[in-house]
Amino acid sequence: MTRISFLLLFLVSISLNAQNNAIGFGEKLTYTASYNMSGILTDLAEVTMETSAVKTSKTTLLRLKCKATTYSKWDNFFKIRDLYESYVNPKTLKPYLYNRDINEGGYYKNMKYTFSHKTKTVKTVQRKKSNWVQKKTVPIGADTKDIISTLYTIRTFDLTNLSSGTSKDFTILFDREEIKAKVTYLGKETISTALGTKTCYKISLGSTNSNTVNGTLWLTADENKIPVYGKFKIPVGTGELKIKSASGLKN
């Protein structure tokens, strides 16, 4: 009986500590975000997702950086310059530091999270225009991550033998509040992308509480599991994210 319980404990600990075999250093993915209304596409912004190695005196971390910039035709109407970055453990993608610097149509906000996994707290610093600063420490759960490391964590899961409908819950710290999110595996699908025709894992992203689906993501069905296409619900029409180029892939 003890042996069985040890074996179970071992299996549980393996599944909990999903290891990163998909994301390496120096990966760069570029996307076009567009608005789709009745099949008419309007390009809005360029989104880039980059990873790089950050060496401190003690260790090496993985820097995950996401950037959204509106195309020049939009800049005079609604200029967006958003930057999200997270410094994480290269193996487990556990975040240590998170920065969010958004500039959307004149609205500016900067948020910094410093994770302390020992005390299960996050020190937050929020800055807005005219040097407005607010500091706050918030308690978090054991598996709480920021939004960027959660996005990358989804890629580390082994989806090969999953049956469609299997879901996993996440806790995301956003705007200093813990949000429960759910990722559901929907099966395999072949779609054509800028990188060629790809067989993809189709997953849906939604909130745990309301059971609503906010978005669908297609990840390539290979070792890299790069997101090649995304569809997101917005009040009128749909938002789309299409891959433009990918470089520096790990596998």
Partner: peptide, 14 residues
């Protein structure tokens, strides 16, 4: 961030 990370107590098994 580099400054901040230097000050943090990060435990990663090299």
């Amino acid at each position: 961030s580099m400054q901040e990370l230097e000050d943090l107590d990060i435990e990663i098994d090299e």
